[in-house]
Computed example of a mutant assay.
Amino acid sequence: MTDDASTDTEADAARPDGGYASGHELVADGGERRSLRQVVTVAHTEYRLAMRSRWALALAGLFVLFGSMLATFSGSAVGPEGMERVVASLTSLAVYLVPLAALAFGYDAVVGRDEEGWLEVVFSLPVSRARVVVGTYLGRLAVLAGATVLGFGFVGFLLLREFGVTYWASFLAFLGGAVAVGAAFLALSLLVSTVAREKTHALGLALLVWVWFVLVHDLLALGVVAAFDLPGTVLTGFVLANPASVFRVLVLGQLGTTAGSGFTAALATTSLSTGLLVASLVAWCVVPVAAAAVLVRRRRV
């Protein structure tokens, strides 16, 4: 496909009625290059639609508001202790806020398009349903990641002025973890949106996902840890079974502190390596999207 055709594809993907690129543009290229172009076209469309709906601005504003308030009212000690205290507080905030924002942003990714009639049009084109799902995820991920970086990046600027660059590595670890946990919960929301038949059902399932991973899982794990003398492998399993727990342990491990309480404090001292935690978050992103790409083939539109 020529550069002019590529430009036409992007222009069509961004046309005012929000439709996807034409079938001719999606199949004009061959092999892997065509597959990649299809995914990119769908991702570009989702990105433009999300930006047009002001989702990015709303998410960034939310992160700026809560992050700035927390950074302002956290401890004012100068040095690594003060920085660690602020980053630990931001982690406690982000573990509730970022998954909720990701689930709210992604729960209608498939079922919403279905109710609007877009899936019927898109699936009638010679483009794989799996590529539509992957492109939808990547487009929304770009918006969510950008909003997370901009929102919490503003908080990082405040911390840079307060503590200087010497202790900023801990904040960068937090920022990367926040983007990763957001990506994981966005993948879960995409899976929920794929299996749900109505938007209301998808919203309810998304809320249940948030309640389980952010609230119930750690409470149950804390009860088990307190009641039994468990080996380290069981604790490792508890952590890896929850992307929110992986995020907290990853950031607190980089801080070199056991800041936190309950299950988080117990897990902060485990011997989980950074590589294993990062690989776990990557798996929490890939597996739900792959499952959604398979299940969408059975969806009736």
Rank of each mutant, 00 (worst) to 15 (best):
E84C: 10
L57Q: 11
L203W: 04
D229F: 07
A183W: 03
V64P: 07
F63W: 02
D4L: 14
P231F: 01
H44Y: 11
E84P: 00
G182P: 01
G177E: 03
L191D: 10
G31K: 03
A241H: 07
L70E: 07
G177S: 05
T258M: 13
V211M: 01
A226H: 14
L62S: 14
V98D: 03
T136M: 04
V216K: 00
V132I: 09
A77L: 12
D4F: 08
L62F: 06
L276M: 03
F213C: 03
V289G: 09
G106F: 01
A184N: 10
A241Q: 03
G275S: 11
A196M: 03
R300W: 10
F163Q: 15
T136P: 00
L276I: 03
A279H: 05
A226D: 15
G223V: 05
G153V: 02
V87M: 03
L203S: 08
V192N: 11
M1Q: 04
T258E: 14
Y20E: 14
R131D: 10
A50Y: 01
V225T: 09
G146F: 02
V249H: 00
R298A: 13
V165R: 05
R34K: 14
L158G: 13
R85K: 10
V110L: 09
G106A: 06
T264L: 12
A60I: 12
A259W: 12
T72L: 15
G253M: 07
T7D: 12
R197C: 00
L219A: 15
F228D: 13
F263P: 08
S124C: 14
L159T: 02
F105I: 10
M1T: 13
L277E: 04
